[in-house]
Computed example of a mutant assay.
Amino acid sequence: MTSDATASPAGKIALVTGAARGLGVEISRQLAALGAHVIVAARDRRQAEGTAAALRAEGGSASAMKLDVTSEADRLAAREAIEAAHRRLDILINNAGILIDSPDGGTPAERQPSEARESDLRRTFEVNFFAPLRLTQTLLPLLRRSEAPRIVNVSSIRGSLTHLSDPTSPVYPIRALGYDTSKAALNAFTILIAEELRGTPFKINAVHPGWLRTGMGGDRADMSVEDGAHTAVRYATLGDDGPTGGFFFLDERLPW
């Protein structure tokens, strides 16, 4: 894939979840700078409004939305609000996610898989898998109205079964059952819905943003959020000849 596979998002309507901090803020900023109207979605309305106001102050177009991605009521309200304001949705970036297996992305899980708590697994899957699944399903009617709908699922290299089973991989020692398997499930959903919609204008991909210096990634991470947002933005702005049903880090196609 090369840069000529991208298209300008100017005038597009984009929804970014988990957009009040970290990677979500930067994805929103970069999309707004490219001319998209960004709906900044977060559990805390005041934080979402603060981010949206900052984007507008920088010359972008942005609005705020309270959206707890685990809440069916919030998901339905989001669809109604977007329908009323814009009639369509062009870009959905499922960015919201949690990591509770360990203090940060560079630290091995506090519990080995054989000792993982069911409550932690269920909580992680609710946010990292079921929420983006249900939100995508809920917003699909609005995305179908777009001439070039794009869905980006923010995954992780730790959702790659190839990397999880490779002793030479940097993620091999982490063994975070909740986070890793929730991202693997998100990857599987990406494949299946992309195949369902293959042959339509939809482009649906999973992305690994990199190991980022955020609250989740930790201070030892080797990438900034500015660099980390590039992959999500790139696949949110794919041209008609861009890929679908893939797993990417920048130009690199990652192994499932």
Rank of each mutant, 00 (worst) to 15 (best):
S165A: 13
P201R: 08
E196T: 12
E195D: 13
T181Y: 01
L135I: 13
T162D: 15
T181S: 14
G199K: 13
D120I: 02
P167R: 06
T200L: 05
F189E: 07
Q112A: 15
P173F: 10
L139R: 07
V171D: 15
I191Q: 13
F189R: 04
R150D: 01
F129P: 12
G97H: 09
P108N: 11
L142Q: 04
L143A: 09
F130Q: 09
S169M: 11
R122T: 13
I100P: 01
A109H: 05
R198T: 12
I157R: 13
P201Q: 12
S102R: 06
G106V: 07
K203N: 11
L143Q: 10
D180E: 15
P167G: 09
R145V: 01
L99Y: 05
Y172K: 11
T107H: 00
S182P: 02
I100T: 14
D166R: 02
S182N: 08
A131E: 10
R150S: 02
D120Y: 03
S114H: 12
G199D: 11
L139T: 04
H163E: 14
R117M: 03
L99V: 09
A184G: 10
L186T: 10
F189K: 06
A185P: 06
K183N: 08
L197P: 08
R158Q: 14
K203M: 04
T181H: 02
R145P: 04
R144Y: 05
P132L: 13
I193E: 06
V171I: 15
E118Y: 11
Q112K: 13
T162E: 15
I193P: 01
Q137R: 13
E126N: 11
E115Q: 15
S119K: 14
R123Q: 15
A184L: 13
S102V: 07
I100D: 11
N128P: 06
V127R: 02
R150I: 01
G199R: 12
T168L: 10
L133M: 14
I157D: 12
F125G: 08
A131T: 12
N153V: 02
G106C: 07
L192K: 10
I204K: 03
G159Q: 04
E126I: 03
A176V: 06
R198F: 04
L140N: 10
F189L: 15
T162P: 00
V207Q: 12
A188W: 00
R117S: 10
D180F: 03
S182I: 05
T138Q: 09
T181Q: 01
P170W: 00
Y172S: 12
L139E: 04
A109N: 07
G199E: 12
T200A: 01
L142V: 12
N187L: 06
S182T: 09
P170E: 11
L186A: 12
R175V: 01
P103F: 06
P141N: 05
I174D: 08
Q112I: 05
